[in-house]
């Protein structure tokens, strides 16, 4: 099977700091790949290369086997890649509807079609089952879970083939975290490929099919989730070494 997304030998330097050093990862349809590592290991930088926020100095990105150039966030969206950023990237002064459709508003002629956007936002947010009393208040006035669901709604509305979730549950309570987990499973069943970045090992073990661990801008290794223990993965994160009993998957 052709991978949905392949990133090969990606390197990126910020001034004197080698943020990404020859990094390669892949993602198959209907698969969840967990990206783990300390702060500053390069996880967020890597996914920002894929989402078009940064451009790599060298390396290659393939989408469904075709090499693509991703220079801007629009490029990434055009290839069916949607991103939920760690800081959510919401315009706090705008309401939920405006945020879900930001940059891709529905219009009739030159005029924003507010009613249709409000209706479709409601449909998509219903799917997340996180209570939002009114879609027409600024998202600054919403709870962490509500803001998160707006950010997720924004990503899934546009029928992503590949979804990047950077710390999707960081701001959430246990109940809301569980709902996001259910959503990930549902999307997976629809054939969406998901890169999941998280600090929470339990989350990742629960949801990811494979785990890629990064340290100091390099990939330590990629393993199949069922074949490793928490301690194995912690060893990769902290020590930067592969578990002895495994080859890299």
């Amino acid at each position: 099977m052709t991978p949905l997304v392949e990133m090969n030998n990606i390197s990126l330097r910020f001034g004197g700091n080698q943020a990404l050093n020859d990094v390669s990862v892949s993602l198959y349809p209907g698969e969840v790949v967990g990206l783990l590592g300390h702060n500053g290991a390069g996880k967020s930088t890597l996914i920002k290369v894929l989402s078009g926020a940064y451009q790599a100095d060298s390396g290659q990105i393939l989408v469904e086997g075709q090499e693509v150039q991703i220079k801007t966030p629009q490029d990434s969206q055009r290839y069916g890649i949607e991103t939920i950023y760690q800081n959510l990237a919401l315009a706090d002064n705008l309401d939920a509807v405006a945020n879900v459709f930001l940059g891709r508003e529905k219009v009739r002629g030159a005029v924003l079609d507010e009613d249709v956007m409000e209706l479709e936002s409601r449909t998509i947010l219903d799917r997340l089952r996180i209570r939002i009393p009114s879609l027409r208040v600024p998202v600054a006035n919403m709870s962490g879970g509500q803001r998160q669901s707006v950010a997720i709604g924004r990503a899934i509305y546009f029928k992503a083939k590949c979804l990047i979730m950077d710390e999707p549950t960081a701001a959430l309570g246990p109940e809301e975290t569980r709902k996001v987990g259910e959503l990930v499973k549902a999307l997976k069943a629809e054939g969406v490929g998901i890169f999941l970045i998280s600090h929470d090992l339990h989350d990742v073990f629960d949801l990811a099919d494979r785990i890629t661990v990064m340290k100091n801008g390099k990939v330590v290794g990629t393993v199949n989730t069922p074949e490793v223990s928490h301690d194995d993965v912690l060893g990769m994160i902290i020590g930067g070494v592969m578990p002895k009993h495994l080859p890299s998957a």
């Binding site: 991103t83 002064n93 705008l94 030159a110 005029v111």
Partner: peptide, 24 residues
């Protein structure tokens, strides 16, 4: 209130980074 241009000006004011990442 009713055009993309107006919406984008407000989005940029609220969160310039979010506006950029949204492809504006």
């Amino acid at each position: 209130r009713s055009t993309r241009f107006g919406r984008y000006v407000f989005a940029m004011g609220g969160n310039p980074e979010a506006a950029r990442l949204a492809g504006i």
